[in-house]
Amino acid sequence: MRVGKKLFPYPVLNNSKNNSGFGDSNYQLMITITQNENYFIIEKAYVEVENQDIERMLADGRAKAIMVVECSATVFREKYEIGIEPKDISIPIGNLNDKVEISSFIYANQDIEHFNSNDFLEDFADFDFSIEKYDILAVDDGYTTKVVFDEDKDKKMSSIFSVIKSNNKDLNVMTVSSENKQIVIEMPSQYFDYHDNMKHNDNFQNIFFAIIAIPALTQCLQEIKECFSDVYSMDINEVMNDKTWFVSIANRYQAVFGTELTSDEFIDCNTYEVAQKLLNCGSTKAIEDFYNLLWNGRSDSDDE
């Protein structure tokens, strides 16, 4: 659960300084995230509270701290009571998939009259507030991470593409759409059947990469790149949260280029060249395969 820029009718201690009703005080959720094949593990979860008034309320039980783990894809949401002492929490990995948000709150565990602090921002100074049970006192919107867990998942790059048969009889070109999970390539029915008959033949893999996958990937990368120039401060993690297939692209980029795909790298890249390199230099290898098929009756270049 993210509070973001939500306004409260009383001062709330927010980890985000711009949204905090306090001056120098601070509130922070401290965690270390790891995962193994069975569990998503939040190690040493605790809160750091730099405000004496709230710290005192935590100590005497008038307030409590919790950590909320939420995964909207699996409709999973659980709260865990935490405190200033580190605590390990394990969540069965099968409960999570895709984006996981981990946030933390301190809330009033009872009605609190005359809530005030010397560190309230000027607008609130000299006031005290009536706080009701469960009202939020401190917030840290925390962390967002991604769990990609699918025991049977095909990890090959080619699995980011879905080539489908068109039921539109008038269609005579391929169309490409960048969906959440995959890049979908729609093919006229007749050509879909040709492709379907040949797609398992290793001799044609680079040729299919060159005429189908590379142009499709180029178009989708270009579309995302254009979003970067339209939306100020957009970053690569947002793209990965929005498009699952882009996570495979980022991983492949690291393997091929030996460097992490950052927002800056992406903005500066030539999408056509990157698409070719990510897909095994399929365009140039396809020429080689054509040549060998014509003259030798088979292709020699290596496949992905």
């Binding site: 009383y10 919790i66 469960y134 009202d135 939020i136």
Partner: peptide, 12 residues
Amino acid sequence: SVRIIDAISEDD
């Protein structure tokens, strides 16, 4: 609206 929904007990 300003309360933490996760903490509210079922009885409440």
